[in-house]
């Protein structure tokens, strides 16, 4: 028996929003410790990894590990039937899970709706993501990162990210001209959500597709801060941390032939 009840149901809507543009079908891997998802986009240059800890749910019950194969488009349609303030409970039979039950309860518990989503068999390759000591780790307000991606898309479909110890610089060059945004580290003790920090082992300069980066910024509502981790010849890591877990996006850099 699998059961996971999330008092903050809106979080599940936001999580789905942050994944569904990148991936259409995905396995939710359920275990004693929580729920996780790992999936690549169609072109296999981007990967999303989601982890939700069991402690974030109340209650959480999972007797044995199993996977829920979900079409995210269909799940999204059903999730639209949940109110923003609703408590959401996910239920499935772990021995023969051919459907996922979703229960939406309003705060006063007067309205309860129940939906069953048909599950599918998804054969997905699972990659083991290595622990990496990144050359540069940057924390910045997530809304700022979203704005930079949106703004620079006006100029080009690619962005070069340069990180040095006193600056992170985003540069775009296109047919109409060029644009860049530079941010300096700031520490605002009273407003940690607005701070920018740079941890640097060595300077990096890498180029990425803005289409993907702006897709990743769908995670913005999940966290005030975003973490960017860069290393030469490694996929960029973009992480949004939540109380209940994290969503991580990886993107392969554009490299010369």
């Amino acid at each position: 028996m699998f059961e996971a009840r999330l008092t903050q149901g809106a979080l599940l809507k936001r999580l789905l929003d942050s994944v569904k543009e990148l991936v259409t079908d995905a396995n939710f891997d359920c275990s004693e410790t929580g729920i996780s998802l790992q999936a690549m986009d169609n072109s296999h240059v981007a990967l999303v990894s989601l982890s939700l800890r069991a402690e974030g749910f109340n209650p959480y019950r999972c007797d044995r590990g199993f996977s829920l194969g979900v079409n995210l488009n269909s799940l999204n349609k059903i999730m639209k039937c949940a109110g923003n303030e609703d408590v959401i409970t996910l239920k499935a039979d772990d021995s023969s899970a051919d459907s996922l039950c979703l229960l939406f309860e309003n705060s006063s518990n007067e309205r309860v709706s129940e939906y069953e989503l048909k599950l599918m068999d998804i054969d997905q390759e699972h990659l083991s993501i290595p622990e990496t000591d990144y050359d540069a780790t940057v924390m910045m307000p997530s809304a700022e990162f979203q704005r930079i991606c949106r703004d620079l898309m006006v100029v080009s479909e690619s962005v070069t990210i340069d990180v040095s110890k006193d600056e992170i610089k985003f540069t775009a060059e296109g047919e109409l001209g060029t644009g860049n945004v530079k941010l300096k580290p700031t520490s605002t003790i009273d407003k940690p959500e607005e701070s920018i920090t740079i941890e640097l082992g060595q300077t990096v300069s890498l180029q990425f597709s803005l289409k993907y980066l702006s897709n990743f910024t769908r995670g913005t509502p999940l966290s005030d801060q975003v973490m960017l981790c860069l290393s030469d010849n490694m996929p960029l890591l973009v992480e949004y941390k939540m109380d209940i877990g994290y969503i991580r996006y990886y993107l392969a850099p554009k490299v010369g032939d």
């Binding site: 690549m40 390759e125 990886y250 392969a252 010369g256």
Partner: peptide
Amino acid sequence: KLKQKTIAEYFS
């Protein structure tokens, strides 16, 4: 000309 490797080429 720039190209992108797949994620699997980095993480196997």
